[in-house]
Write a protein that binds this DNA or RNA. Sequence first.
DNA 1: CATCTGAGTCCATTTTTCATACCCAAAATA
DNA 2: TATTTTGGGTATGAAAAATGGACTCAGATG
Lengths: 168, 168
Amino acid sequence: MKIKLCYTGGMTEHASETDSPHHAPVPLAECALARAIRAIGDGWTLLILREALCGVERFDAMHDDLGIPRSVLAERLSKLVAEGILEQRPYREPGRRQRNGYGLTEKGRALTPALVALREWSEAHLPGGPSRLRLQTQDGQEVTTRLTRADGSSLDDLSEIVAVAKPE
Amino acid sequence: MKIKLCYTGGMTEHASETDSPHHAPVPLAECALARAIRAIGDGWTLLILREALCGVERFDAMHDDLGIPRSVLAERLSKLVAEGILEQRPYREPGRRQRNGYGLTEKGRALTPALVALREWSEAHLPGGPSRLRLQTQDGQEVTTRLTRADGSSLDDLSEIVAVAKPE
DNA sequence: CATCTGAGTCCATTTTTCATACCCAAAATA
DNA sequence: TATTTTGGGTATGAAAAATGGACTCAGATG
């Protein structure tokens, strides 16, 4: 996946109402969502973040859980560390040499809402039976996401949402 | 990325408190989040969903916006249609032959919260300047996500969240 | 009829992933 | 001290996927 950040941007003169109601041609370089996708939008990377969210810190544990090739795991971990999403966490088991695991930084933990939303979507719309992974508060309440407007009111009808391009 | 759904599952006898506090070894097959990642956790797929959320329906428009190879775009679109996330939307411009675009189904639109959360994370934690893509209500209010507990109260401290494996 | 256009398909080349084997440092064992 | 063991990686060749460009197809237009 080699995203070119050249983008013809801007409405061309023949853009018309035959286009969809709200085509917002925001160049990829100026789109926060696109940047997030470039940072973590990869199957293995997302699965590694799931492991991290579940508290799995060790290379071999991730390797065993995911069945990911070791070279790919090493490469993704170092990329996530370089991006500040994971950090190395040296640890030592008694009678064993010091090693380093990987844990979420604050930046990485801030991805929780996105992962919770993805999990919710999956539960509601994908087949596969109930999930055994629960994301909950320490007192056992399930955590979910809710869309809200700027004024704080909650937004239930997705068709109310439009994507628009801010003028430069 | 070839996920093997064999997973050694279950705590082994030497699992101990040297593991992270809440290691929840839920097999990938029984994890809703993992299923979501398998369905849409791919860079191009996510960028295509961004296009769809922005109302871009046409093959060539997506191709131009993203710079994605045509063969990859065709393959991803047909996969998304097969999964019921996108649907073909036949349309005809005046004086042109009928063609089909692609639009979000209800299932696809239900991914909006996840994409909004991802966008929020990017704005807050990735460099790159302000985003020009806004997701807002028709009356111009920005849409954001909020984590909530089952009782409806909102949850601001991410460290309150734990991942646990439901017993089978 | 010849041409144009959007929406793909086909194909040769390059890149990434996969699976397996191998390596390294320090602790444990002898 | 020499040897083994083990977690945490690297190296390597084969397989799969992405890339970019050419090609195709159907129908509208001139």
